[in-house]
């Protein structure tokens, strides 16, 4: 039931109101937590909210994180649209990231093509990583939620194995990581020296592409119909299974691309345990953005800012980074629950 996400004929305010309400409530909750745990709550909370806007560098960091979140948020969105819950974005990001580095280094291609090949390889890896859960859901009816999660526990282990045993590890680095990509094989930076990069434009372009597919193609129309009301879609002769499979693969590929952009655009290498939970944050971003293309961008920017702010808060005050994850969980409840109904139940009224 995606009904609340459909916004045809409804004002922007009506669409965004529940999101804004949920964000306000959860920020209030996090403020209460900050007050409870901190000696200097105001400083801490101000850094949490505003840290990303203190200077160009942190603003750039915010953009680079938002880039990844747009893609992983889009990955979750594409799945949800057709009724598939890809909870394993995290794993797809890991395999995508490693695959991109390997292909970028190994491909005997001129740099721009090698970068393209690396990004494509990340997408393919992500799609492969969701293959088994997708087939099990569509043809055997096994809930994808557990299988995608399991696959996502396997991915970091597999990538670290390949890193250590595949001759990929940089012997001079302390942390297990690959050697850095040569400068020509990196996505160009914007707002240097921050890690913001051209990946942002790729992500934005894909959001536009997603919007076009959703609103202007037959596939998008079918995706929406299958996700909203499978019985209607079936009656109209739409092949529910095929549409669902396509959404699964698109979702996996987008998460894989998010990983590839971490490698090729942000870190310029694959580092063990590089992700602060980009895959799970993608689910939150998709829900805050109410599965709308513009919503996903805004939610990713918001969460990018909070990630940067949380990092700064951790150094500048006594409140740890983990506040971000608490907030993330709270937001999931508030975004998917019916706040209006709770209000009515608790306080009476209409």
């Amino acid at each position: 039931m995606l009904e609340r996400l459909r916004n045809a004929g409804v004002s922007a305010w009506a669409v965004s109101r529940p999101s804004l309400l949920a964000i306000t409530i959860s920020l209030t909750i996090s403020f209460v937590i900050v007050v409870a745990v901190s000696e200097q709550p105001v400083v801490a909370f101000r850094t949490f909210l505003g840290g990303a806007f203190e200077n160009v560098y942190s603003f750039g960091s915010m953009l680079s994180i938002a880039t990844i979140l747009i893609l992983s948020g889009l990955a979750a969105t594409v799945g949800f649209r057709a009724g598939a819950f890809n909870a394993g974005g995290e794993g797809q990001i890991y395999v995508g990231a490693l695959m991109a580095v390997v292909v970028a280094q190994a491909a005997p291609l001129p740099p721009p093509l090698a970068i393209t090949a690396a990004l494509m390889a990340g997408m393919v890896a992500g799609a492969i990583w969701i293959l088994v859960p997708a087939l099990m859901r569509v043809y055997l009816g096994i809930a994808e939620i557990v299988t995608t999660l399991m696959a996502s526990y396997i991915a970091p282990l597999l990538t670290i194995y390949l890193l250590m045993n595949g001759g990929l590890r940089n012997p001079n680095a302390g942390v297990p990581e690959t050697v850095r990509l040569v400068p020509e094989l990196r996505l160009p930076r914007i707002l240097s020296p921050s890690s913001a990069n051209w990946g942002l434009f790729i992500a934005l372009a894909l959001v536009v592409a997603y919007w076009i597919v959703l609103e202007r193609t037959r596939l998008g129309m079918r995706m929406k119909l299958v996700g909203q009301q499978p019985s209607f879609a079936e009656t109209m002769g739409i092949d529910n299974k095929r549409v669902l499979l396509v959404s699964f693969f698109a979702s996996g590929a987008l998460a894989g691309l998010a990983g590839a952009i971490v490698s090729v655009g942000m870190d310029h290498r694959f580092i063990q345990s590089f992700s602060p939970g980009y895959g799970f944050l993608g689910i939150t971003v998709a829900l805050i953005g109410r599965l709308s293309p513009l919503g996903v961008i805004l939610a990713a920017l918001l969460y990018g800012a909070l990630v940067v702010g949380a990092g700064k808060m951790q150094t500048a005050s006594d409140v740890p980074f983990a506040l971000l994850f608490v907030l993330q969980g709270v937001l999931v409840f508030l975004m998917t629950g019916n706040l209006a109904a709770v209000g009515r139940r608790l306080f009476g009224g209409r």
Binding site: L2, E3, R6, A8, L225, Q229, S231, F232, T235, G237
Partner: peptide, 27 residues
């Protein structure tokens, strides 16, 4: 195969209007 049957010219006005007849949340 509902798709093939529709394509061969069979129109269907279903009994379950809300479940099968219209997509409630589409325009």
């Amino acid at each position: 195969d509902p798709h093939r049957i529709r394509r061969s010219g069979v129109a269907h006005i279903p009994e379950d209007r809300l479940g099968r007849g219209v997509s409630l949340w589409s325009s």
